[in-house]
Design a binder for these strands. Sequence first.
DNA 1: AGTTGTACTGACAAATCTGTCAGTACAGAC
DNA 2: GTCTGTACTGACAGATTTGTCAGTACAACT
Lengths: 112, 112
Amino acid sequence: MPVSKKEMSACPIDAMLSVIDGRWKGTILWRLSDGPLRTSELRRSIPGITERMLIRHLQDLVRDGILIRHQEDAVPPCVRYSISKYGWTLVPVLETICTWGRTHLQRLNRGR
Amino acid sequence: MPVSKKEMSACPIDAMLSVIDGRWKGTILWRLSDGPLRTSELRRSIPGITERMLIRHLQDLVRDGILIRHQEDAVPPCVRYSISKYGWTLVPVLETICTWGRTHLQRLNRGR
DNA sequence: AGTTGTACTGACAAATCTGTCAGTACAGAC
DNA sequence: GTCTGTACTGACAGATTTGTCAGTACAACT
């Protein structure tokens, strides 16, 4: 049995979660849904994230086909990330998740 | 900065994922969406899960208000879990996740 | 009398994920 | 000539999650 869901079960729920699961992936996609950003712009727009984690998550998302990496061959390097056509199919799902999450947060706050 | 999303950020996406995140939680909810089950029935219906993990996840889900634990005081003990009214608001979200996950799995299979 | 089944807990090992730190190569600013 | 910024990699520590194993108390069955 796989220890992690990332090792890919045939369960569609697990398959979906393996794509957005990661401490910062939701936030990254959220930022990029307003338009493409450079690596350093993303880093500055997400308080608390480290460069290392940002790049690891970006690579995951590119590998899964959600993001596209545009590199302009220049010095200093200039890399821009954008949501792919396929990635856009994920955005409405994130919005559904977000809507439920918002009511959940309200429920938690009412609870005390 | 929290190491884990479980420590509760204000991000609605993270809040939602913290509820269903866990190696087997999706599967547990999936099984229970067909109706209440006893602990041991759940365990037998989910191949690969251990009793320890099942119980840990069940307790999380009860704590989050998603499941209800019905105990009949009898020997041997008889405990049944069902999805709460609040938990049912989560089910359509899981279905959305599942739908996307299914197309994602198809895409992965076409890719080789 | 020994085994099985029920629903759980506690202690701990193993796997995985996240964060920290140093280092790369080059350009432009000071 | 030193410092800053760019986009990354590699090695490793620390945290978190998952899995393994033993143990509980009682009843029913053989």
